[in-house]
Design a protein around this nucleic acid. Structure first.
Lengths: 150, 150
DNA sequence: TGAAATAAGTTTCATTTGTAACTATAATAA
DNA sequence: TTATTATAGTTACAAATGAAACTTATTTCA
């Protein structure tokens, strides 16, 4: 029997590779659901989803909530404003802080996108039974808290 | 009680977002293990890992094995060749096909990197018990085959 | 006070990445 | 044979991303 690969890393079994492969396919599939039709990118979609839930927050708060770099947030916000999907003002109390809200058009668009996206998630979740779903939830939480520990 | 978020997408519970968040942290941590010290990027590292295991394969076969775009493969191969880590010739039988191999320097470097990387994977895996490990393996396989179905 | 430090957001520049077009070779088929 | 199509790999150009510098506003504290 061949001992060639003994003790050596096999990419297809390597957790970071497997996670990255799965995540990339899912992210691309998800983006395809809205990118062509609505002309927004994943950063923009995440910001819209977050603002739909938490109106009136600043760019910095947005970035913190969705783990996005402040430069990426700034660019996505600019793009969303240019498209008339987002309204930005600066706070009276602290004129550095932005106050962000979806416009009517932005909220309407978001409402059209949301079912497409949740439907895609449902198709993922429906490939698992209820036990597997709770295991997945548990494992993601456990791994995530492990890698984010100080 | 607030009904605000009923039926609405919550990013922190959304599977594609959770996967992407976890994967990004892991990918960055992994890259940090070798990028500064050995001056290679994740594409280059994956190609090295694959060639260490499967010598004498072509760029196209490499790309297929590690799910990497042919342009990305071409660029990473060029960079590895420039650094003297990879040796590329073209096949006698089919002069379009490349035949790739790590150089002595490339193989030596890979052997230094591999334990760093497997050690990081071990730290991830050791945060789970044996039951969770087999659940994780099962879930990743199941989700991956679900999303790669035609 | 007001000088220094901090914070929010933007801009700039270099690097990376993705898509499409291109070159060269090989396979197919009229 | 030779015209067409397909394949391997590279190049070129545009878009996306990341790091650092910058602007403006606020806070800290000597």
């Amino acid at each position: 029997m061949s001992d060639n690969n003994n003790n050596h890393l096999v990419l297809e079994k390597f957790l970071p590779y497997r996670l990255s492969y799965l995540t990339n396919i899912i992210s691309r599939s998800l983006a395809r659901l809205y990118s062509e039709k609505f002309d927004i990118n994943p950063h923009e979609w995440r910001i819209m989803a977050n603002l739909y839930r938490y109106p009136n927050i600043s760019a910095a708060e947005t970035g913190e909530k969705i783990a996005m770099d402040k430069v990426a947030v700034s660019r996505a916000i600019k793009s969303l404003c240019d498209k008339g999907l987002l309204h930005k003002i600066f706070s009276k109390e602290d004129r550095r802080r932005s106050v962000l809200n979806l416009t009517k058009e932005g909220a309407d668009m978001y409402q059209q996108i949301e079912p497409l996206v949740t439907c895609y998630e449902d198709s993922l979740l429906q490939s698992l039974n209820s036990q597997e779903l709770s295991q997945l939830d548990h494992l993601l939480s456990k791994l995530t808290s492990h890698v984010t520990e100080d």
